[in-house]
Design a protein around this nucleic acid. Sequence first.
RNA 1: GGCGCUAUCGUCUAGGGGUCAGGACGGAUGGUUCUCAGCCAUCAGACCGGGGUUCGAAUCCCCGUAGCGCUACCA
Length: 488
Amino acid sequence: MRFAPSPTGFLHVGGARTALFNWLFARNSGGTFILRIEDTDQQRSTEASVATILDGLEWLAITWDEGPFFQSRNVEAHRALALRFLEEKSAYHCFCTTDELEARRAAAEKDGVAWKYDRLCLRLAPDEVRKRLAEGHPAVVRFRVPDGTVAWDDLVHGPTSFETAVLEDIVLLRSNGSPTYNLSCVSDDIVMRVTHVIRGDDHISNTPKQILLYRAAGAPLPCFGHLPLILGTDKKRLSKRHGAVSVTEYRDKGYLPEAMFNFLALLGWSPGEGREKMSRDEMTALFRLEHINKKGAVFDEQKLEWLNSQYINDLPPERIVALVRAELQAAGLLSPDIDDGGPRRAWFLKVIETLKARSKRLPDFVRDARPFLSDDFEYRPEAVEKHLKGDAASGGRAALAARLAALRAMLATVEPFTEEAAEKALRELAESRREKASDYIHPLRVALVGTAVSPGIFAVLVLVGKERALRRLDRLIAFLQSPPASAS
RNA sequence: GGCGCUAUCGUCUAGGGGUCAGGACGGAUGGUUCUCAGCCAUCAGACCGGGGUUCGAAUCCCCGUAGCGCUACCA
């Protein structure tokens, strides 16, 4: 089997899923998975695009057994096939220009008649054709579509058929001599001895054309399977206007390749029994082409995010750190003492561990780790609004400052500085002053991390450490004693 | 317009003549609790419509309808 992307852009999630199903099928059946870059469109193909496609495939760990082959290297073979068709009279020269075709098409459309190529040039006498060719008139080579029905048993849709009457004579070679998609594709698939052509549903109408070419070439027919399309939330084919569509974007958003792989596999395929989160090996073992759905599937990023959080949770902290290291560095949060081998490494791994359950995507770690790694953080407005106003009846900010001062004094005496000891001390303090523990906890959280939400406060307290916690309490007390900002 | 494909909760899906139509995401509610997340529990939520066939249809057949795809000297 093969995956045959055209390098005219990034690796689309739809393409990635096609590659993935081919890969799963190849691995499951012991087949050979070929990567073929269909770069016959010289105008739009770019090397950068090839690079990003390979990059995306590698990220997802979709490995190929042969290739990448570049289709452009095979144009001579493609051309030879077309010439052979010409010789065998299953193809002919057509001198109609694009403009002429356009005009006739437009006229037909105006009359409300379905247009297909009218075979004007098929009626040309052989001498006339030779003459025009000799005079250098540009010509395309068209395949003469025979009458009849083309049918195949689609691997996912079952029996499918087309009347060839609806097909127009296929352009095989452009007037500049370059082969077109259907010719190149069939020629390469024959040469590469592809047995299973598994591609998107959008190719379904190409299949009868290609079958005709196989027949004319006398080559054995591969099995065809057409995968349902991946849709946007409006049920239309997923495209840029729906948001992120390239796998690279999902990598950049902090999704794990194993989560993406798993999610994509579930789009249109299910092993049954409610199995959802599966390892690559499990998926490979369970994969069956017959279990692929016929219906297009909406790409639901919320579910991807959920799966991602599940995979993140399975990761040891070391792995997570390795994955976010670059971002940490970019944010100026990476210091040698927390880096691999640094004295605070173990402590930092603990920070990551406590952040794990609440993280859905990789950047969540960078955002949430900041107050642990740096004193440079702001009090979030919503946290100030919620927990630092102090209640007028109990004396407002001044009373709050006094309460925090008491808390600070108490924490200074806690030794050893453990979660249990700190919690016990704080609760006793609150009780002795006939106040609620939460009246201390919430402002303390703002003091320590600047936000209204965080992991358990005592875990945070210990992770921040006694000295820094006391300093941060001082900072908040000073903040409370300074004149309130204009907002409040 | 022509041709093709498709149709189960909002979404991903299981089920393919007899099921309380099952699960997951998301949602709601409650529990755990210092917050959020997590975790746990509970709830709401679907067989596109109409005809057949059959004792019995979500399931098989036909006809509609709707959605999508293709309709290039792109791939």
